[in-house]
Design a protein around this nucleic acid. Structure first.
Lengths: 139, 139
DNA sequence: ATAGGGCCTGTAGTTAGTACAGGTGCAAGA
DNA sequence: TCTTGCACCTGTACTAACTACAGGCCCTAT
């Protein structure tokens, strides 16, 4: 009769399905120190409570917004009560915005260049391809 | 008297400096099959001729434009005379432009979100940080 | 003669996961 | 009751595109 005293909570696969993340990603976040070690059933299966699901969603959202695992450790320390202030979080967000803007700028330049060289391409069988030629010219 | 019959060409370090790429990257491109095995001095040092420098610049430029190593293999096959036609190169470039455009779109959304949440941040010492709060809400 | 630097090799580390092999337990169908 | 199949467990290897490092060799300058 021991072993199933109403083990409430989600197993790893259920949590993965609910949050839309890959099964193994959850275990990865655990070893990376972002997710706490969860409770286990008698069989050793991980059991997650709603607070842990909330935390995982937070992590996934921050990753979506481009924060690195290392940055997330900082954010989570703040959440967990010790560590940096809100000002530090703000600074991280600002730095992040700056790097996103520079990525956008670079990608736009890149797009322009690619469009220029590809419109010159006659889409033919010519042995000298204008795209190839363009790539030979330095940026 | 053997060993220095005017070994013309660049050594690996010189080529790296001239092209602005990392020393080890050149060796990496060699093992990856993008750069040919270069000539060697009697001491076994790699010696690059201008054609090889040209090829390296081509590779670096294409990488800058976001082509993957695998895509580069296709481009280089074309250059080397066998393989796909100019039309294939055009298709690769077009696919590339599409993926760049979608990256730009995503980054813009992301920037907007981050700006929104960070402007709400009072940059204070408040225990509940609006950025953290915003991250807890799903996208 | 020796100290420094550049080069050589093979291998391991990086980021953020994903995939896989081999094993255990649980629950339902035949 | 058996058994089949799935979900889960673990550790490890793989991905992209490099970068870094350890341990040696050789060349040049002092």
């Amino acid at each position: 009769m021991a072993g199933h005293r109403s083990e409430r909570g989600l197993k790893r696969g259920e949590l993965a399905r609910r949050t839309g993340c890959h099964l193994e990603t959850i275990r990865y976040y655990e070893t990376a120190g972002l997710m706490p070690e969860p409770a286990r059933t008698d069989a050793g299966h991980r059991i997650y409570d709603p607070e842990q699901e909330r935390r995982l969603r937070f992590i996934l959202r921050a990753r979506e917004l481009g924060f690195t695992i290392e940055e997330l450790k900082g954010l989570l320390k703040l959440i967990d009560g010790d560590g940096p202030s809100c000002g530090d979080v703000y600074d991280m967000a600002e730095a992040h915005i700056a790097s996103i803007r520079s990525k956008i700028t670079d990608l736009k330049k890149l797009e322009k260049t690619l469009v220029e060289i590809s419109t010159e391409c006659a889409r033919g069988e010519a042995p000298d391809c204008p795209i190839i030629d363009a790539l030979y010219e330095s940026a």
